[in-house]
Structures are given as C-alpha cells and as structure tokens.
C-alpha cells in the first residue's frame, strides 16, 4: 500500500461551489424569496407634506425608520403603502412641513 506519489489535497484548491438550481424545499429552512408584506395598513395617522414649506433638507428621509420617503422634483413625499405612521418625520421636520392627520375611511 506504500506509495510516494504526492497529490495535492483536493479541497485545498480554492473552490467555487456550484450551487444547484433547485434545492429540495424540505431539507433545511432557507428562504430566498422576499416577503412582500407592506405595512401601510398599520397607520392611524398619515403624514402630509406641505410642498411649499419643504426645502428638501432630507431630515425626514434620514430619520424615517421604514425608509418610505421618496424624492420628488421639488419636495419629499411619503410612500403610503409602506408608511407605518409613526410621526417621526413630522416631529423632526425643521420646517414643520409635515403634519400628521387622522386616517379616515379606507
């Protein structure tokens, strides 16, 4: 059984794992598909931006926990599908350009 041939260790060569296209869905809990849930229906109050007062300072964007502030040509607006209505944007806006108003109806 003696041999003097030196063979490099197979798994010491930098390897690139070839991942299969499809993995059995019952093997181990993994997820690669994004959760599509949107929390816009959590709101009791909604933020409303006063476009005249908004100077696009981005304070609302900086502090919005759900990052639902979207930039428009002359102002920052709110993506209401995502906004949870926490009111941080209104509280922090240095120009008082955002107010929270009660959600009514649908």
């Amino acid at each position: 059984m003696t041999t003097t041939t030196k063979t490099p260790a197979p798994n010491l060569i930098p390897h690139k794992v070839v991942y299969p296209e499809k993995v059995p869905d019952n093997l181990c809990p993994v997820a690669s598909e994004c959760n599509a849930m949107l929390p816009g229906d959590w709101r009791a109050e909604r933020p409303v931006v006063d476009r005249d007062k908004c100077v696009k300072c981005a304070t609302c964007w900086i502090y919005c926990p759900v990052q639902c502030i979207v930039e428009k040509p002359a102002w920052f607006d709110i993506d209401l599908d995502i906004c949870k209505g926490c009111g941080i944007c209104a509280h922090e806006c240095p120009h008082r350009a955002i107010t929270m108003i009660e959600e009514v109806g649908r």
Partner: peptide, 17 residues
C-alpha cells in the same frame, strides 16, 4: 457540505427563518 444552505453573497438567502 452546503449546496442546500449557504451564507454566500453570490447566492443570497436567509437561513433559518
């Protein structure tokens, strides 16, 4: 070893949701 579950930026996935 890990064809079924990998923490690899080339193959993003959540492991153990």
């Amino acid at each position: 070893v890990n064809w079924h579950a990998a923490l690899d930026p080339e193959r993003p996935m959540a492991i153990d949701p």
